[in-house]
Each structure stands twice: as structure tokens, then as C-alpha cells.
Design a protein around this nucleic acid. Structure first.
Length: 568
RNA sequence: CGGGAUGUGGCGCAGGUUGGUAGCGCACCUGCUUUGGGAGCAGGGGGUCGUGAGUUCAAAUCUCACCAUCCCGACCA
């Protein structure tokens, strides 16, 4: 490819509204342009990278036996109504009507559709199956952001496994776990797996793959000394024991003007935060619910969602709270509350001599024994782990790392199989629902993650495996002799299977060097009159930043070998 | 959805308070000179100033409404 004819609109300045490095560099490098929020046009350079990432994903999924499909992205409402997700998915799903008025949805994922196809499976002898496609997903995100990291329209490889039993699912799950780790390794994205909430997927076990980045949106709790790591939506920690003394009588006392945990700590006759109960009044799908955590703990709403299955969760308004408890925030508590559900954080089990609001403004209780004085409807892990808390496995102080979620694998069980009638006969002439798993990896997000992990002040440093071009032959002077020499090297590289670009633009050296570095081509072969006289080319590595002189006749072979080595 | 900010050629910005011919840098076109790290000089092309209404003789500028985009949070596979 001749650079002079290639559409690569590089920019000297990043657009003002791009903040994340990958966003800035992918726009500056002419890889993509924004159409509107969350929708990007892939330009030729961007699409080349995208295709290479997708190709690596395809190879690894094929290697574990995956069969490639292509399912529609526009779906009838009925299929989503059958699974119940027409309602539970809420606003994330784009919905539209056709000319007949029929309701349609744009696919956010494809469990339902693959399950429909899978209903033609009939015998255990056909299993296991792993099916996948690489297809556009549409999600009406509340806040698209950071370039390709969070968009409303993107390509995802999603695969689905079908097994006769849980043991089979475990195999498919482990195969995907290994394949995903190989994918991240090959595309140059440092990754690790974490325990995760399954959220709206409805599965019972899932692993998220994370790469550390300030541009990410997830917090991961990690132990520096053992291998514990979990999404903060799922993470736990070991709390130091607290001596409550022995249980005493429940006693109401006046606390004029005390509205906060901190104020009650400072109040004469109050209590330390870890001896207080924090009562949060939440609306769970329209039901007033009391959620109780320790005074110095924070509620994690995803944990609450996972524990209750609630879809819509929000704090109750002050008037709703007053209507339910006859008191205002600052004096709320769960003691003697009988007519509202109460969910209690597990860490409060067995606690006595606690202090909490009395549901009378300016009054609190002390001497609260949790089990004795509160009608707990449900115990659940609700608190959010903080940095420095002890690892549940080994007790080491843990850290919190900001991460990008780059893949997620789920054990789904038989939920979709039962809904869509995916059943197979068994050797003993029985019939069982098929056990499913689903496995997702966003192509564009991984492309952006690769940039986040591989760039410097001059631009992107693509791993050879996904670089838009593996090498560029930079012609320093557009005379016949230099062009001919460049063309020969270009042809040799082409013949050796290298993705090579020849920079034949009538531009100054600085422009060519800067562009090649910005768009991150791994190897640059520079041909100028100086070296040409001595029969030499210069070979510069984008990654190493180092330049060496190589003979004109051997440089193509040297580069071809290095490219091949990098891809091994 | 709450908070904050911004919309002026492809990109980055000034102009706005005090209404009066729409400007600068980069990019683009032509010519000359230059040519190993984003060249110089000269000439040139390109803009519904986010949209709509209003005030005014006159609106990029003032008023109102709306839209869009970005950031933080909420939310989110």
C-alpha cells in the first residue's frame, strides 16, 4: 500500500473532548472518527486493527472447537419477552417498531437467539457444542465515554457452549478461560481474571477479565500476596474482631441535632462508627426496604441487586422515608420495624450493644442486639470493601485497582435451555435441558485497551500482532533511485508475507517519522541518499526506539524474520 | 438521572463583557526556495458562528427555549 493513496487523516492536535489516551491516539492517528456519542466510524487503519484483533479471537475460539455463525442483530420482541429480559433489560435495549407496528429490539447479546437455534439439538451425542459469532451489539448506555472503551454500537465475539451436564460446562468454561488469556497475551493486553457479579445475565458463576488502567470503570480488589482478586461488586474481606461486651437492655436516649454517623460518634453517650448501625431506606422495585450496614461501611448497590434480584434500586425520597418510618434521615433505624422488609449485612451477625436511630427525630437506641431487636428478613453480603482491608484468603492488606473490563465469561446453567426448549435425549432414554455457558469479548474495547497499555508520548506502539501495518518503508527523497530501492524492499517484504506500507509522500522527514510513530508501525525502514550510497538502510523499532544500519539486500529478510518472531 | 463545562472552516483556538465587513495557528491549493525530526516566503480556497424564536436599523456577541458533545457521579454484562 502506498501511503500517498492511503486515507490516514492524522491530526497534530487531539480533539478537545478526547481524554483517555486511547481515544486521543486513535483519533489523532486517523483510525476512527466519531459520528455521535458512542458511535464511531472505523477508518481504514482502524478497521485493519479491528480485523486483526477479531482474527486472533476467531483463531483461539476455533482452536477450542468453536463454530462460527452470524445471527441477526434485529430481534422480535417476543423472543425477549419469552426469556423475561424484555422487561428486565430496561433502557439498555434499543427498541423500535416496524411498518406493521410490531415491536423489535436491537441485540444487546444473543443468548436467546442462540438458544432458539439450539432447540434443534436433540441428542446427547451431539454435545458438546461451542457456537459463536462476531456481531454488532447495540446498547443504549446512559453515558458512552472514553472513545471505544464504552460505546453504544460495537462488535463483540460472543460464544455459547452447550453441554449435557455441569461437568461438561466446567470444561467449556475452562477452555474459554484459557483461550481468553491467550487472546489477551497475543494482543498485548495485560490481563487477569477476577470474581465477578453476573448481573443481568442471570448466571451463577462468572469470571471477568481485567486490565489495569486509569481509563477503566471498574474497581478491582486485589491481594498483593496471594491470588485473590475480585470486582468490588463481589469482593469480600476479613474484618478485625470487635469486642461488644455482653448484651444489655435496649434503651432509647435523646440525641438532639445528631444527624450523621460522625455526629453520633462525637456525641456524649454516642458510639464509635463501628458500633453503630447505618440504616438505608431503599426502593427495591417500588418496595420500601431497610438496608442495614455497619456505621463505617458503605453499601454496594450491585451486591444488593445480586442479593435481592431487584432490578430498579434507588434511595427512597425523604418523604417516602418519612411515610414509612415517621422519622427523617439521621434518626432512622430498623429496631421494632415490622411492616417493611429488612436486609442486614452479614458482618452484623451476632453484634450486641449497638447504637442506631429510633425512628423518632432526635432519638437513638443504644444496647441494640441485632438478632434480638431487629426482625431481619435477609442476611447478605452488602458492604463494599475498602483499600487496606484484610484479604479473605491470607489476611494481607488489599489494594484497589482501577481496571477496564475486557472480557466476561458466564456459567448460565439451564435457564435459557428451559425457556427455549433446548433439550437432548440421554443414553437411558431420558431427556435433560442443556447446560449453557456464554462468553463475551468486545473487539473494539480490546483494541482500545491495547492502546492504553502500549503507547508513549509520540503515539501508539502496536504489538506486531495487531498493528495496522507491520512495517513501513520510508522514502526520504523521491528520486528514481531511492524509490526503486524502496520498491524492491517493499516487494520483498510483501513476498515474505509482511503487511508493509511504503511512505512515498512528498513530505519532510519529520512529518513522515512523526506519523509513523503516531500510528505505531512496529518497524520502520528508512531509505535516504546517505545510506543508499553505502548500500545501507536504517531499521528503527517502534518498541525499542533504536535504529541500526542494515544492508539493502538483507533488510527485508531481517524485518520479515522479526515480524514472524514477534507473532510466534 | 444529578452536578459541571463546552458548541465559531477538517483539528486546535481568539473574538462575546462594550451589538456594526468573522479572525489566528495547523491542515488544504498554486508558485518559488528548501529538503534526515512536524520548513520559509508570496498568493489563494473553504465557515448556516449548534438549532429555533425574540430584542434591534443591525446579533457570533444580548434574551428565551431547545439540541448536541465532553467530564464527575448515579447507572450499566
Amino acid at each position: 500500500m502506498r501511503w500517498s493513496q492511503l486515507f490516514v487523516p492524522t491530526l497534530r492536535d487531539a480533539p478537545n473532548d478526547a481524554v483517555a489516551p486511547s481515544h486521543q491516539l486513535l483519533v489523532r492517528g486517523g483510525f476512527m472518527r466519531q459520528l455521535h456519542a458512542g458511535h464511531y466510524s472505523m477508518l481504514p487503519m482502524g478497521w485493519r486493527v479491528h480485523q486483526k484483533v477479531a482474527g486472533i479471537v476467531r483463531e483461539e475460539i476455533e482452536a477450542l472447537g468453536g463454530q462460527e455463525f452470524l445471527l441477526p442483530t434485529m430481534h422480535p420482541a417476543s423472543i425477549w419477552q419469552e426469556s423475561g429480559r424484555w422487561d428486565t433489560m430496561g433502557e439498555i435495549m434499543f427498541r423500535l417498531n416496524d411498518r406493521k407496528g410490531a415491536e423489535l429490539a436491537l441485540g444487546i447479546t444473543h443468548e436467546e437467539i442462540f438458544a432458539t437455534v439450539a432447540s434443534e439439538l436433540s441428542s446427547y451425542k451431539q454435545l458438546p457444542q461451542v457456537w459463536y459469532h462476531i456481531q454488532t451489539k447495540f446498547r443504549d448506555e446512559a453515558r458512552p465515554k472514553s472513545g471505544l472503551l464504552r460505546v453504544r454500537e460495537f462488535h463483540m465475539k460472543d460464544s455459547y457452549s452447550f453441554d449435557v451436564d455441569d461437568a461438561g460446562l466446567d470444561v467449556a468454561f475452562d477452555n474459554h478461560d484459557r483461550a481468553y488469556r491467550r487472546i489477551f497475551e497475543r494482543i498485548g493486553v495485560p490481563a487477569f481474571g477476577v470474581e465477578a457479579s453476573s448481573g443481568a445475565m442471570g448466571g451463577n458463576d462468572s469470571v471477568e477479565f481485567m486490565t489495569p488502567s486509569d481509563a477503566g470503570e471498574d474497581d478491582v480488589v486485589r491481594c498483593p500476596s496471594c491470588d485473590y482478586s475480585a470486582n468490588i461488586e463481589k469482593a469480600t474481606s476479613t474484618l478485625p474482631p470487635i469486642d461488644d461486651g455482653s448484651a444489655t437492655e435496649l434503651e432509647q436516649f435523646d440525641t438532639p441535632g445528631v444527624r450523621t454517623i460522625a455526629a453520633l460518634e462525637a456525641f456524649d453517650g454516642g458510639a464509635a462508627a463501628d458500633r453503630q448501625l447505618k440504616t438505608l431506606v431503599m426502593m427495591l422495585d417500588g418496595t420500601i426496604t431497610l438496608v442495614v450496614v455497619r456505621g463505617d461501611h458503605q453499601l454496594n448497590t450491585q451486591k444488593l441487586a445480586d442479593a435481592t434480584g431487584a432490578i430498579e434500586i434507588r434511595p427512597a425520597e425523604v418523604d417516602e422515608t418519612f411515610g414509612a418510618l415517621n422519622a427523617h434521615p439521621g434518626s432512622l433505624g430498623a429496631v421494632n420495624v415490622a411492616d417493611h422488609p429488612i436486609i442486614m449485612d452479614s458482618s452484623l451477625e451476632g453484634r450486641v450493644n449497638m447504637t442506631t436511630g429510633a425512628n423518632i427525630d432526635d432519638k437513638h437506641y443504644r444496647g441494640v442486639s441485632v438478632e434480638r431487636d431487629i426482625t431481619v428478613g435477609q442476611w447478605a453480603d452488602l458492604r463494599e470493601v475498602g483499600a487496606g482491608e484484610a484479604c479473605p484468603n491470607c489476611g494481607t492488606a488489599m489494594i484497589i485497582v482501577r481496571c477496564i473490563e475486557i472480557g466476561h465469561i458466564f456459567k448460565l446453567g439451564t435457564k435459557y435451555a428451559e425457556t427455549f426448549g433446548v433439550k437432548v435425549s440421554t443414553p437411558d432414554d431420558g431427556e435433560v435441558p442443556v447446560v449453557m455457558g456464554s462468553y463475551g469479548i468486545g473487539i473494539g474495547r480490546n483494541m482500545a485497551a491495547a492502546v492504553e497499555a502500549n503507547h508513549d508520548e509520540n503515539g501508539i506502539i502496536w504489538p506486531v500482532s495487531i498493528a495496522p501495518f507491520e512495517a513501513v518503508v520510508t522514502i526520504m527523497r523521491l528520486d528514481d533511485e531511492t524509490l526503486a530501492a524502496g520498491q524492491t524492499i517493499y516487494d520483498d517484504l510483501k513476498a515474505a508475507g509482511v503487511d508493509v506500507l511504503i511512505d512515498d509522500r512528498d513530505a519532510r522527514a519529520g512529518v513522515k517519522f512523526a506519523d509513523a510513530e503516531l500510528i505505531g508501525i512496529p518497524f520502520r525502514i528508512t531509505l535516504g541518499p546517505r545510506g543508499l550510497k553505502e548500500g545501507k538502510a536504517e531499521l528503527t523499532g517502534r518498541h525499542s526506539g533504536e535504529t541500526e544500519e542494515v544492508g539493502l539486500e538483507t533488510v527485508a529478510a531481517v524485518v520479515a524474520e522479526r515480524v514472524a518472531a514477534a507473532k510466534r
